[in-house]
Amino acid sequence: MDLPELQRVVFPAHERGEYGEALDAIDRYQIKDPDEVVDVAFWRMCLLSLLGRTDEACAEFARRLDEGLWWGERIIADHDLDAVRDDSEWQRLAAVSIARAEEATTGPLEPLDVRPDGETVGTLVLLHGFGWRPQSILDRYRPALGWGYRLVALHGTVPVAAGRFAWPAEGAETVAIGQLHQIGDPERPIFSGFSQGAGVAVRLAWSGRVDTAGVFLVAPAFGPRGAPTPDTVQRPVPTVILAGSEDRRIDKIRRVSKDLQALGAPVRYDERR
């Protein structure tokens, strides 16, 4: 089992409220890549909290802090941790973690650029979600290399946990354009973003600042800036939106899809369970 397979067990069990089943899957999982620890440990803390096992959640938090990991305030605010939030030991550990986040610095953040072995038929520009890293989204699109697509995974610049990033609330599109310049401004790429990255992708594509062939949004989170509006749209492009019917943002996603269709561009909306 790899990490995406673990997610396909843990996340549905979590949605069903079967927290013990999700925790058992995590405890059976053998971590192969040290970079997975920051995600798996956080999921474990959340599940222990939901199960009312406060002492064990604190012990997991302390152990991972001792290993050098940390999570920023926005991550620790997850509602799954509400049950432990008032515990004095948890508060002490959270203060240590948040202090590390505030001190975190990043070196040069470069996009990942992977080309197919044979002829290149096009370029997919990928924008990861909140708390992800470029490699996370690139791995999910890797089969497209076999179809001849070059994959370019852009890099969020706001550290939110050890090795995990988000896009800035302001200027995310400028960050993305700068990284596209770094890899030579691919001709008419297709943008694809997940969650927070989807919001950045659609605003950038429809702004006309980059000549793109289309945009594919997965579980989009449009954030406080919202989706493109008539006064911000310069160039509507073909758009596909894929969402899950159980997504907590589904009502907003449906509404935004209709609003985008009303702006006159071909928008295909696909909702799945």
Results as ranks from 00 to 15, higher is better:
A13T: 00
V40F: 06
Q196V: 00
V114A: 07
V152K: 10
A57C: 13
P228H: 06
A95M: 07
G197Y: 08
A201Y: 03
G264P: 01
A25K: 09
P168A: 03
V233A: 12
V10G: 04
T212E: 01
F42G: 06
L263P: 12
V84W: 03
A144I: 01
V160L: 09
Q182R: 10
G171R: 05
P134F: 04
P189F: 06
G223N: 08
G107H: 08
A169K: 12
A99G: 06
P143F: 09
L124M: 12
D33V: 07
W43A: 03
G107V: 00
W147M: 13
I250V: 14
I98R: 04
V215A: 04
D86W: 00
C58L: 05
L154V: 09
L6I: 08
R188M: 13
T106G: 12
R44K: 15
V202M: 04
A227E: 02
D27H: 13
E21Y: 00
F42D: 03
D2S: 12
I250G: 11
S97Q: 05
H181E: 15
R92M: 09
V202L: 08
P228R: 09
V240K: 13
P108G: 07
L109Y: 07
L48F: 08
A13Q: 06
E89N: 11
T174R: 07
R249M: 14
E119R: 15
A265P: 09
G264S: 13
V158C: 06
I76L: 15
Q30S: 14
E271D: 07
F216P: 01
G107Q: 12
Q196Y: 02
R115T: 15
R115M: 07
Y149H: 06
V175G: 06
D251W: 00
V237S: 11
G156L: 04
I76W: 13
V158P: 06
Y149S: 04
V96Q: 15
G244K: 12
E21P: 01
G122L: 09
P108I: 00
G72D: 10
A213W: 02
G107T: 05
K258L: 15
